[in-house]
């Protein structure tokens, strides 16, 4: 039982990072119906910017997080402007392929700039070590990761539900043309969505590299894919769904590793994607929406 709870704690640790990334996927999908496959690479960029802010600029860790988030937000907006905006009226598959292209471009650009070698994220002294509660050991970094991701989800929910920008987002998501007719600046709204999503991706990247010490150009691919499955599992486009999906993925992954076998964990995780798509394509939190004619 203790082992089981311990594995769940490690699962929540991994899952909250997936949740952060999944939030970015889900926001962008919710508004422009685009699966932004470059999102995993935003995570990688966030990790690099965090690393550079700490090692080159010598900034303290919280400031490095802010910088990584800001720079990633800027890159998110640029990617949207350069790659996705011109394709807004093109078939959806074109935008999807472009997203893959952007993903490859970013990976390879970082290989050229930084080389393939694995860089070590410096240790953050106040995040080192564990806290023991009732015989269970909880890494300090877990508190930070879980706290930040829940805070981010609440903030996002607030922005989407309570603010004017959020209202505009919901309107654009519902009907882009009608929103435009109502005087909503659609381009600006989409741009803000990308900025928010990418900032979360950047945050996820810094936290990921702190939890797993290492930074390299291809580090975003696998967590990106897992977060995508998380977003689909929770119901893509739904913010609490992405959060829930992330935690479920992390917990399933760790239980698989702990009680079945490490070699099986990825197979089982991606198997979930197939099952969800077969039996409940709209996801756990999704409603079955009927297409209006």
């Amino acid at each position: 039982m203790k082992d089981f709870l311990q594995q769940i704690i490690y699962g929540i640790n991994a899952g909250s990072i997936y949740a952060l990334i999944a939030l970015g996927y889900t926001m962008v999908y919710g508004i422009v119906k685009l699966i932004n496959f470059a999102h995993g690479d935003i995570l990688m960029m966030g990790a690099y910017f965090g690393l550079l802010a700490i090692t080159v600029l010598g900034l303290p860790f919280p400031l490095a997080i802010v910088i990584a988030m800001l720079v990633c937000a800027a890159f998110g907006m640029i990617i949207n402007k350069v790659a996705y905006k011109p394709l807004r009226n093109a078939p959806r598959i074109s935008a999807l392929i472009t997203a893959l292209g952007i993903s490859m471009f970013l990976e390879n650009y970082f290989v050229v700039q930084f080389g393939l070698e694995v860089r070590k994220m410096p240790e953050i002294a106040w995040l080192k070590g564990e806290v023991f509660i009732g015989g269970l050991s909880i890494p300090k970094v877990t508190f930070l990761i879980v706290g930040l991701s829940i805070a981010c989800m609440i903030a996002l929910q607030f922005i989407v539900r309570k603010t004017k920008v959020g209202k505009a987002m919901r309107a654009v998501s519902e009907d882009m043309q009608a929103a435009k007719l109502m005087g909503i600046n659609v381009d600006k709204t989409i741009s803000i969505t990308f900025a928010l999503g990418s900032a979360l991706g950047g945050l996820g990247g810094v936290l990921y590299s702190v939890a797993y010490y290492q930074v390299e150009p291809y580090m975003g691919i696998l967590p990106g894919l897992k977060a995508f499955v998380a977003a689909v599992l929770g119901g893509i486009g739904i913010i609490p769904g992405a959060m829930f999906g992330g935690f479920v993925m992390g917990i399933i992954e760790n239980l698989t590793k702990g009680f079945i076998s490490s070699s099986w964990s990825n197979a089982i995780l991606f198997g979930i994607l197939i099952l969800v798509l077969l039996f409940k394509p709209s996801g756990i939190f999704g409603k079955n929406t009927r297409e209006k004619v």
Binding site: Q7, Y10, A14, I221, E253, N254, K257, S262, S263
Partner: peptide, 20 residues
């Protein structure tokens, strides 16, 4: 006798199992 895949970054679950 535990295998892992090349992309694995999180070994805490399997290490906890070994610890047992």
């Amino acid at each position: 006798y535990e295998g892992y895949t090349v992309d694995d970054k999180d070994f805490k679950a399997v290490l906890t199992k070994i610890k047992g």
